[in-house]
């Protein structure tokens, strides 16, 4: 799908999703600076096209697991903004009842299994979700997201081996945002690339522009179908970028302001769709503004809900340790 093929309604829908993803995270940043959100908080700003595009090709039986940069994955799997924002604020109305926070969000109903704070740990877990899909024969696919930093973990390769050996229905989504905390890919990965890491296991890697939601939708569509049809695991290598520091406490001195500004100016996933809507489909500024207002209202309401929600009751401390 190119911007030109984009239908009016689906184009507007995608724009709305991208914008909501961006603005939820911006609001989270704001609430963090006001002290409503605390601890570790990793924003997804810049990378929105990855999950927004992929979710176009996911079904309700599919499973998702990711790392600590998880708010937007939750959102796109259908967890309400109120529930996400409340979790960020440690409130009982949050998706983890205030006990997980930013890094630990889950929904059995929507089949999101975290939110994992340990780099790399989600990768074998994702293959386990795929194992369950295959075992049950339910036709589901596991979407297993991990970063360029996580891509060097040994457990990733143990997982690749078994996933290929057992032909598991897993899409490994490598979100290569160029940095693992402060270390760039060329300083962490031998050979300077992660695009060939599936080769020894016979797992194909598809290169995707992770800043271009159309590229994500188009390239992933047939790949996901193949995985769903039992043709074995695939790696989607998403070339993407995070705009903010690694977490709220990272001043990001390891990259130049120029580098960040250039990406924002030339590759921003939201601007790209907005321009396509305006110039190729002829959407008017008023419609764009309407969506902005709509999304702003959702985000403001979520923040209000989160702030006004009660903290978990004291007895919750001892709950849910074991069943």
């Amino acid at each position: 799908m190119s911007p030109g093929d984009m239908k009016r309604d689906s184009g507007l829908d995608i724009y709305r999703k991208l914008l909501l993803a961006r603005m939820i995270e911006e609001k989270a940043g704001e609430l963090y600076s006001q002290g409503h959100i605390y601890g570790f908080c990793h924003l997804y700003i810049g990378q929105e096209a990855v999950i927004v595009g992929l979710s176009e090709n996911m079904t309700n039986i599919d499973s998702v697991v990711t790392g600590y940069r998880d708010h937007v994955h939750m959102l796109l799997r259908g967890i309400p903004p109120n529930s996400i924002m409340a979790e960020l604020c440690g409130k009982v109305t949050g998706c983890s009842k205030g006990k997980g926070g930013s890094m630990h969000m889950y929904s059995r109903d929507k089949r999101v299994y975290g939110g994992n704070g340990i780099v790399g740990a989600q990768v074998p877990i994702g293959a386990g979700l795929a194992f369950a899909h295959k075992y049950r024969g339910d036709g589901g696919v596991s979407f297993t997201f991990y970063g360029d930093g996580a891509a060097n973990q040994g457990q990733v390769y143990e997982t690749f081996n078994m996933a290929a050996l057992w032909n598991l229905p897993v899409v490994f989504v490598l979100e290569n945002n160029r940095y693992g905390l402060g270390t760039s890919v060329d300083r962490a990965a031998a050979g300077g690339t992660l695009a060939n890491r599936g080769d020894p296991f016979g797992i194909p890697t598809v290169l995707v522009d992770g800043m271009d939601v159309f590229d994500v939708i188009e390239k992933s569509k047939s790949v996901i179908e193949k995985v769903r049809n039992g043709e074995g695991p695939v790696i989607l290598h998403m070339d993407t970028y995070r705009y903010k520091g690694h977490s709220m406490s990272d001043p990001a001195t390891y990259r130049t302001r120029d580098e960040v500004e250039t990406v924002k100016k030339t590759r921003d996933p939201i601007t790209r769709v907005k321009n396509a809507l305006i110039h190729e489909i002829g959407i008017g500024d008023d419609k764009i503004e309407e969506i902005m207002n709509e999304v702003t209202a959702i985000v403001d309401a979520a923040a209000k809900f989160a702030i006004e929600s009660p903290a978990p009751p004291d007895h919750a401390l001892e709950m849910d340790v074991t069943l």
Binding site: Y38, G39, G90, K91, V92, S96, G98, K99, G100, G101, S102, H104, A311, P312, D314, A316, L317, E318, V321
Partner: peptide
């Protein structure tokens, strides 16, 4: 407390 550490500030203080 004999629990994993909760995120919510109030619970963490109790823990």
């Amino acid at each position: 407390s004999d629990t994993p550490m909760p995120y919510a500030k109030t619970l963490e203080l109790l823990a």
